[in-house]
Amino acid sequence: MLEGKVKWFNSEKGFGFIEVEGQDDVFVHFSAIQGEGFKTLEEGQAVSFEIVEGNRGPQAANVTKEA
């Protein structure tokens, strides 16, 4: 699992990017966010995740919000 911070997330469109120190930003789709209820992320929020190869390159999977 990697750790990063949410760079930005558009809850209307359901996607955004996660910043990872020393690496390129990683695309995140709302469907990759773990948990119940409305799936969104806040700018600057700490998250842990895995990287998988998507249709358009690397993207986040199994995203969990850090306490």
Rank of each mutant, 00 (worst) to 15 (best):
Q59R: 11
K13R: 13
K39E: 04
F30W: 13
I33C: 04
V20T: 08
P58N: 09
A32I: 03
W8C: 04
H29W: 06
D25S: 07
A32C: 04
H29A: 03
Q45I: 09
L2Y: 13
K39S: 06
A46W: 15
E43T: 14
V28Q: 00
V47T: 03
H29N: 04
N55L: 14
I33S: 02
V63E: 00
I33D: 01
V52A: 09
S31F: 06
F9E: 00
E42S: 10
N62E: 05
K13W: 09
T64Q: 15
E53K: 14
V63Q: 00
I18C: 02
Q23H: 15
A61V: 10
K7D: 01
T64L: 14
G57I: 04
F15R: 03
E19Y: 13
V28A: 03
D25P: 08
G44F: 07
L41W: 02
V6P: 00
D25C: 05
E21Q: 14
E50K: 10
V26H: 02
K39N: 06
F38Y: 13
K7Y: 04
V28L: 06
K39H: 07
E53A: 10
A67R: 12
F49P: 00
R56D: 08
E50W: 11
S11A: 14
K7N: 03
S48K: 15
N10Q: 08
K39R: 14
V47W: 01
G4R: 01
E42N: 10
E19H: 14
E36W: 06
E42H: 14
V47Y: 02
V47D: 00
M1Y: 13
E66M: 15
G54V: 07
S11T: 13
E19T: 15
F38D: 08
S11I: 13
G44C: 04
G16N: 00
A67C: 06
R56C: 05
N55W: 14
E53V: 10
G16Q: 00
K7W: 03
E36H: 10
R56H: 14
N62V: 07
V20F: 07
T40G: 08
G14N: 03
D25F: 05
N62W: 11
K13Y: 08
S31Q: 07
P58M: 09
A67W: 12
F17D: 00
W8D: 01
G4C: 02
Q23C: 05
D25L: 08
G14H: 04
M1N: 10
E36F: 08
F17L: 07
S48E: 08
G44H: 09
N10K: 09
M1S: 09
G16L: 01
S48W: 13
Q59N: 06
S48V: 13
W8K: 04
K5I: 07
G37E: 09
S31M: 09
F9W: 15
F27Q: 02
A46Y: 15
I51H: 04
I51K: 08
E3F: 15
M1L: 12
V47A: 03
K65L: 14
E21K: 15
E3P: 10
Q34H: 10
D25T: 06
F15S: 03
V26I: 12
K39T: 06
A46Q: 12
R56A: 12
E12Q: 14
K65W: 10
E12W: 15
G44W: 07
K13L: 10
E21G: 11
A46P: 12
R56L: 15
T64G: 08
G4Q: 01
A46C: 05
G37S: 08
V6E: 00
V20M: 12
V6G: 01
Q59G: 04
S31P: 04
Q59F: 10
F17C: 04
I51L: 13
E66Y: 15
F9I: 03
G57A: 05
A46D: 08
E21T: 15
Q23W: 12
E19L: 14
E12F: 14
T64I: 10
R56F: 15
E12A: 13
F9D: 00
K7H: 07
I33R: 01
I51N: 03
V63M: 04
A32V: 07
I33W: 03
Q23N: 10
G22Y: 08
Q23M: 12
V47Q: 00
H29G: 03
E66S: 14
W8F: 08
V63W: 00
I33Q: 02
N55P: 15
F38H: 13
A46S: 13
S48H: 14
E36M: 10
K7T: 05
T40D: 07
V28G: 01
K5C: 05
I18G: 00
F49Q: 00
T64C: 05
A67F: 12
L2C: 04
Q45D: 14
D24S: 13
A32R: 04
E43A: 14
E12M: 12
T64W: 14
E21H: 14
P58I: 11
Q59I: 11
H29R: 04
K65A: 12
K7G: 04
E50M: 11
G35E: 11
E19F: 13
E3M: 15
E42M: 11
E66F: 13
V47F: 01
G37P: 07
G57M: 05
Q34D: 12
S11D: 06
V63Y: 00
L41E: 01
G37K: 07
S11W: 12
G57R: 09
M1G: 09
P58A: 12
E12I: 11
V6F: 01
V63I: 07
V47P: 00
G4Y: 02
K13C: 05
I33V: 10
S31N: 07
K65N: 08
E12C: 07
V28E: 00
N62Y: 09
G4V: 01
L2N: 09
Q45F: 07
F49K: 00
V52W: 09
G22Q: 09
D24C: 05
A32T: 06
A61C: 05
A60S: 05
Q23P: 05
V20S: 08
D25H: 06
E3N: 15
N55V: 14
F9L: 02
A67G: 11
Q59P: 01
E43R: 15
G14L: 02
Q34P: 07
A67H: 13
G57V: 04
G22I: 04
G14Y: 02
K65S: 10
L2D: 04
I18Y: 00
V26C: 05
N10T: 07
D24E: 12
F30D: 02
R56K: 13
F49N: 00
E66N: 15
V63F: 01
G14I: 01
V28C: 05
V47G: 00
G35S: 09
Q45L: 09
S31T: 14
K39Y: 06
A60H: 01
L2I: 15
P58R: 12
V47S: 01
V52G: 07
G14F: 02
F38K: 09
E43W: 14
E21R: 15
E19V: 13
E19N: 09
E43M: 15
G35F: 09
F38G: 07
V20D: 02
I51T: 06
F27C: 02
G35V: 11
N10D: 09
N10M: 07
F30P: 01
V52S: 10
E3V: 14
E21I: 14
S31V: 04
F38W: 13
H29K: 03
Q34S: 11
K13F: 08
A67N: 14
